[in-house]
């Protein structure tokens, strides 16, 4: 079923296919297991350039696992094995010749709970550029920090207290700080793992707005629990269930006329 999903989608959407941007990341037959538990089964998924791809599905369906495969964050978990291929711009990111540090510099990640480092706001943003040696001097670093904060829509709020602790910000600000931190490394893809689950509605709205703006410069993959959020921010949506990719396609189609009954049930709130 998965094998044909893409063809089916392309065929079904018809005219829209022609306007498809190129594929940025591509997963083929991705299988992931933690010890004896298999978490993902034969997932095939494309992430297209300058689009927001939303991964939805009930808890434990494997969507976060898939997301963490995209920049090999799963490497840090003991006993986790990944099979199949995931490519970034055509290069297999699990190939031994690919360096995980380089990969992560290009595929940034924002996590579920805001996790600013216990350092100042400035140092939080400067951390990535500093370890990668992206700035040659203080002035350049200041500029990177400022643009990143601006892009994350946080600069105006914090410009007077750049040198206070990042942990002192509100939840929404912290999450935008984490996004600014990810942007500062100038990645091509940004992965977001339920970035708004710990935020209140107003902060959520701000972050969603930001995601939409960031799409112009970055490719974004977002895991979300909220149907509305997926509908609001994403262009394409992939539905996961019990470790399998159930359906994938343009967001408006998924939410109006899904092919699979399980997607229908999930979106309408029968389960999840």
């Amino acid at each position: 079923m998965n094998m044909m999903s893409e063809a089916a989608v392309e065929a079904a959407v018809g005219a829209k296919t022609t306007a498809q941007p190129p594929i940025k990341m591509q997963g083929r037959l991705v299988n992931v297991s933690y010890g004896d538990n298999q978490a993902l089964f034969d997932v095939d998924l494309d992430v297209r350039l300058h689009q927001v791809t939303a991964l939805i599905g009930p808890s434990g369906c494997g969507k976060s696992t898939f997301l963490r495969c995209l920049n090999r964050m799963n490497d840090t978990i003991e006993g986790c094995r990944v099979k199949g291929s995931i490519t970034l711009d055509g290069a297999d990111i699990y190939d031994p010749s690919i360096d995980v540090v380089e990969l992560r510099a290009n595929v940034g990640m924002v996590f579920q709970k805001p996790n600013p480092f216990p350092k100042t706001i400035y140092e939080n943003v400067a951390y990535g550029p500093r370890i990668h040696g992206l700035a040659t001097g203080k002035a350049e670093m200041d500029e990177i920090v400022e643009t990143s904060l601006r892009k994350a829509g946080l600069f105006e709020e914090v410009k007077d207290r750049l040198h206070t602790a990042g942990t002192g910000l509100s939840g929404g600000q912290q999450q935008r700080l984490c996004i600014a931190r990810a942007i500062a490394v100038s990645p091509e893809v940004i992965l977001m793992d339920e970035p708004c689950s710990a935020l209140d509605p107003i902060a959520t709205a701000k972050v969603e707005e930001l995601i939409d703006e960031l799409r112009v410069n970055y490719t974004i993959v977002i895991v979300t629990h909220s149907m509305q959020q997926a509908a609001r921010v994403s262009q394409r949506t992939a539905m996961f269930h019990l470790g399998r990719l159930v359906e994938e396609g343009a967001t408006d189609k998924m939410f109006t006329n899904p092919d699979d009954q399980r997607t229908q049930d999930y979106i309408t709130g029968r389960y999840g």
Binding site: Q20, P22, I23, K24, D89, I98, G133
Partner: peptide
């Protein structure tokens, strides 16, 4: 998955962006 159904231009085969990050 047969390549035939994937739009040929879709995959940008440029490989991962190389930057000097002092690896």
């Amino acid at each position: 998955m047969s390549d035939a159904v994937t739009p040929p231009a879709a995959v940008a085969g440029t490989g991962i962006q190389k930057r000097d990050i002092g690896i």
